[in-house]
Simulated assay, not measured.
Amino acid sequence: MTTRTTTRTIRVGTRASLLAQTQTQLVIDAFTGVNPGVPVETVLVSTAGDRSPAPLAQIGGTGVFVSALRDALLAGTIDVAVHSFKDLPTTAMPGIALAAVPRREDPRDALCARDGRTLLELPRGAKVGTGSPRRTAQLRALDLGLDIVAIRGNVDTRLARLDKDLDAVVLAVAGLQRLRRAHVVTELLDPIQVLPAAAQGALAIECRESDEDARSLLAPLDDHSTRAAVAAERSLLAALEAGCTAPVGALAEVTEGDDGLLEIFLRGSVTAIDGSDAVRLSASGPLNTAEEIGRRLAAELIDLGANTMMGSS
């Protein structure tokens, strides 16, 4: 356990949403557990994604929830930023370090439906809400006759629509678990049906690259297997030149190979927004080749027409 102490207060930046603050508090609790005596302060930061009710693709998609936090880091108004990893652009930002990637929560998507229904129990024409083009595309590809409705808002706002105009909503399991809302899940969606977004369920903890003190204090929070898995997924996303709003699914798992060494098994998919076509492949390799595995799988998906599907409407 780290016993390092400092008189400096570590200012942790977070978005103001309940989920963001809950995730940040989990990080702070873990941080103080390994750094007893180090003062911590939470700083709320407003982002473009929080201020605008427009669809993410209209307001910029990738980065709309993280740019303000990164600006605050570089300006020195906060020392640490906590993000949902799937919101981060795949390109690194000069001056900022990915200090830690804590152990990942369940990466799957969840169906929350009226009357406890599962996906196959929903009637044709049922209205299913989601703000994700990836989920929209994959649900349409299942050809269940569902009416996919675009929605925005926090978790509770989306769930409240079940009492109004929607039959079901699809949300990330991790967020529901962190908010203690797991009881509303009526079905955990198998990745064979709906492949999660790259880095879904994972958190990213950033600090200034030059802040050796913060980097040292945050290092114990890092989970090597989660970092490697997410690196493979995000490498695939980057190679496809796709942002967080693209209809791309990616899920990497760290497993033990036949030789007893750890390896990564990565699944990736690209689905046309209208659900008319999809490509899905997998690749595996040693743990220390995570990014290479992602790039290789992306190239194979492109060979099968992935780029055309990402541009479909």
Score class of each variant (00 low, 15 high):
311 G>Q: 11
313 S>D: 14
238 A>C: 10
81 A>P: 03
256 E>T: 15
285 G>T: 12
70 R>G: 10
130 T>N: 12
186 T>V: 07
17 S>D: 15
250 A>P: 06
253 E>G: 07
127 K>C: 09
142 L>H: 07
153 G>N: 07
211 D>Y: 01
134 R>M: 15
181 R>S: 10
245 T>Q: 11
271 T>M: 02
119 L>G: 12
126 A>G: 10
16 A>V: 11
52 S>E: 13
2 T>W: 06
137 A>W: 04
95 G>Y: 01
88 L>E: 11
4 R>D: 03
58 Q>G: 00
255 T>V: 15
247 P>Q: 04
44 L>M: 11
247 P>R: 02
305 G>M: 09
271 T>Y: 01
114 R>Q: 14
249 G>H: 04
263 E>I: 09
242 A>L: 07
50 D>T: 11
85 F>E: 15
141 A>S: 13
259 D>R: 06
124 R>W: 00
215 R>L: 12
29 D>L: 11
286 P>N: 07
67 S>Q: 14
310 M>W: 05
10 I>G: 01
176 L>I: 07
77 T>Y: 01
80 V>D: 04
96 I>W: 04
55 P>K: 05
289 T>Q: 15
313 S>V: 14
313 S>P: 01
227 R>Y: 01
131 G>N: 13
31 F>V: 10
246 A>V: 12
176 L>N: 06
46 S>D: 12
81 A>I: 03
220 P>L: 09
95 G>L: 05
285 G>W: 10
54 A>Y: 12
20 A>Q: 13
282 S>T: 15
212 E>L: 14
219 A>P: 06
28 I>A: 14
56 L>A: 11
91 T>V: 13
148 I>L: 14
278 A>C: 05
112 C>F: 07
304 L>I: 06
213 D>V: 11
9 T>E: 13
244 C>P: 08
280 R>W: 00
229 A>G: 11
